[in-house]
Computed example of a mutant assay.
Amino acid sequence: MAEHTVFTLPQVAQHKSKNDCWLVIHGRVLNVTKFLEEHPGGEDVLLESAGKDASKEFNDIGHSKTAKNLVFKYQVGVVQGYTSNNNEYVQVAATEEPIKRETSAFVIRDERRPKYDGLLEFIVPLLAAASYFCYRYLTRSS
């Protein structure tokens, strides 16, 4: 793995404008200036964290693996004195574009049912209720 430039937090704090936006995520110094317009949450989210450690905010959002791998694309260095946790994500070597999978949560399935199914679902409970009330009427004590 290539060696990265080591920055201090005060050095990173100098880069907190729209034209020069750096932040720290898990000890990695990121230059996200070119990513500001592409960020799905808008550039304001990144500008709020500019120049400081945004690891907590990054974790709280629950980013996808693709988003976590973008960290490596924009990394320009590491923060001095940072120690990593074993829980951190690791870079996944991607040799090709990720496969885009559609979610089935919003797919409406067109399952064909016989036309009389709806009628049976209505009539069977109606007949059961009518039978119960007839039984109660005929067996009540006079």
Rank of each mutant, 00 (worst) to 15 (best):
M1T: 05
M1A: 12
A2D: 08
H4A: 14
F7N: 02
L9M: 15
Q11A: 14
Q11V: 10
Q14I: 04
H15K: 09
H15R: 06
K16W: 03
K18E: 08
D20T: 05
D20Y: 06
C21K: 06
W22F: 11
L23I: 01
L23V: 01
V24D: 01
I25E: 01
H26C: 03
N31Y: 08
N31Q: 08
V32L: 07
T33G: 02
L36H: 00
E37W: 08
P40H: 08
G41W: 03
E43P: 11
D44W: 12
V45G: 08
V45T: 12
E48D: 15
E48H: 13
S49G: 07
A50L: 04
D53Q: 02
S55Q: 02
K56N: 04
K56M: 05
E57M: 09
F58E: 00
N59H: 11
I61P: 02
I61A: 06
G62A: 04
H63E: 09
S64A: 10
T66I: 15
K68R: 15
K68L: 13
F72W: 09
K73Y: 03
K73D: 04
V76Y: 07
V76S: 05
V79P: 00
Q80N: 06
Q80I: 03
Y82L: 00
Y82V: 02
T83N: 05
N85V: 03
N86V: 14
N87P: 00
N87W: 13
V92A: 05
A93M: 10
T95P: 01
T95G: 04
P98C: 06
K100L: 14
R101P: 03
A105Y: 09
A105Q: 10
F106R: 09
I108K: 14
I108F: 15
I108R: 15
D110H: 14
E111T: 15
R113I: 12
P114K: 11
P114H: 10
P114A: 10
K115I: 13
Y116T: 05
D117H: 13
E121P: 00
I123H: 04
P125G: 09
L126P: 00
L127A: 13
Y132H: 09
Y132N: 07
Y135K: 12
L138V: 13
L138H: 08
R140F: 12
S141V: 12
S142N: 10
